[in-house]
């Protein structure tokens, strides 16, 4: 993407943000810019059809509440787009309970149905309990179970698509993490619209904030009253993702536009990756029937390890 530096103010009002290209925008112009950017992303990548029973995965954080607010706006303009919210309670003491309370409050205020599904109800254990049993990286096991549950519940709720709050920074981190771990097959499952399947086993996921930087999302959340007290998952601080994130933020500070460049060049190669890895995740897990790259899915493999460890301890 060509970035033309232009340090002008949008108008005489006080600016609230300086964009990567240099322009300073006031509150009203930024709101207009941000919302147009998200709606343009939806059109550009064909994220929504004319009629949708759309799920929005929310955590109570700024990204997912921003997506929910914007999709709720769209839904009010177009009654054929129906929305419902889904949240996952992993069971992380002192963290998820706070963000779920924020999510519930937002949904109540906006008349949006919120469906909460927990690891405890679905798998018999909270994440905190799982981590006492298995010596695994918290974000790995948590991510597997969260994706599994979101897909399963989206199918059960007959959702046509599931929108998530993933932003440009999240995508950029995932691209770089997959490069560094030589896991390019996982990058084939990235992009603004993923999980296309004809057999009804995959819930298609869409990312309306795909081209929005985290700073832009936070600014939008701040000026629209969506920013709650800062909450960070206790498991995330030392993760590989956190280190890649810090590295990318260092590069962005020195070379503005780095993150846009990474995502834009990735989008150029994505069709080739999708073609190369189109067979992956094509089979059903022999235990639960969910989509899997192997005979049994990662969620069932973790559940089996948990079961064996519990039996061994007893």
């Amino acid at each position: 993407m060509q970035i033309n530096i232009n340090n002008k103010n949008c108008c005489s009002e006080k600016p609230v943000i300086q964009l990567t290209a240099g322009e300073k925008l006031c509150k009203n112009h930024f709101n207009e810019y941000f919302e147009n950017k998200v709606f343009k992303t939806i059109r550009q990548f064909d994220l929504l059809g004319k009629e949708e029973n759309l799920g929005v995965a929310i955590s109570g954080g700024k990204d997912s509440l921003t997506v929910l607010r914007l999709l709720n706006k769209l839904s009010k303009q177009n009654p054929k787009i129906k929305i419902t919210a889904i949240a996952i309670d992993e069971g992380i003491a002192g963290y998820r309970d706070k963000t779920l309370a924020t999510a519930q409050k937002f949904c109540d205020e906006n008349n949006i149905k919120l469906n909460i599904f927990s690891y405890k109800d679905e798998f018999g254990l909270t994440l905190d309990e799982m981590l006492k049993i298995l010596d695994v990286k918290p974000c790995s096991i948590c991510g597997v179970f969260r994706r599994y549950l979101l897909n399963k519940k989206s199918i059960e709720l007959k959702l046509t698509k599931l929108a998530t709050g993933h932003n440009l920074d999240d995508e950029c981190q995932s691209i770089m993490m997959n490069q560094m771990k030589n896991n390019i097959g996982a990058s084939a499952r990235l992009g603004p619209k993923v999980g296309v399947s004809d057999d009804g086993k995959f819930s298609q996921r869409i990312k309306p904030l795909y081209l929005c930087m985290e700073k832009e999302v936070t600014t939008y959340a701040f000026i629209n009253g969506l920013l709650d007290n800062f909450n960070e998952c206790p498991n995330v601080a030392h993760s590989f993702r956190a280190q890649v994130r810090d590295m990318l933020n260092g590069m962005e500070q020195k070379f503005a536009g780095t993150k846009y460049s990474i995502v834009n060049s990735f989008l150029e190669t994505l069709p080739i990756l999708k073609e190369k890895f189109k067979g992956e995740m094509a089979q059903a897990c022999s235990k639960c029937g969910e989509p899997s790259a192997n005979e049994t899915c990662s969620a069932c493999n973790y559940l089996e390890r948990l079961k064996k460890s519990v039996m061994h301890q007893n």
């Binding site: 006080k14 600016p15 609230v16 943000i17 300086q18 300073k24 509150k27 955590s59 954080g61 700024k62 990204d63 963290y95 963000t99 974000c139 932003n167 920074d169 999240d170 985290e214 700073k215 999302v217 936070t218 600014t219 701040f222 000026i223 920013l227 800062f230 909450n231 960070e232 998952c233 498991n235 995330v236 994130r245």
Partner: peptide
Amino acid sequence: VSRNSELILEDEKLNDKDKIKILSVISGG
């Protein structure tokens, strides 16, 4: 960065006794 509940940019001059909030944009997990 905010001052008196209003966002301010990096080039904004600060005054004596200002109360400033520095809010993280990083997702919590």
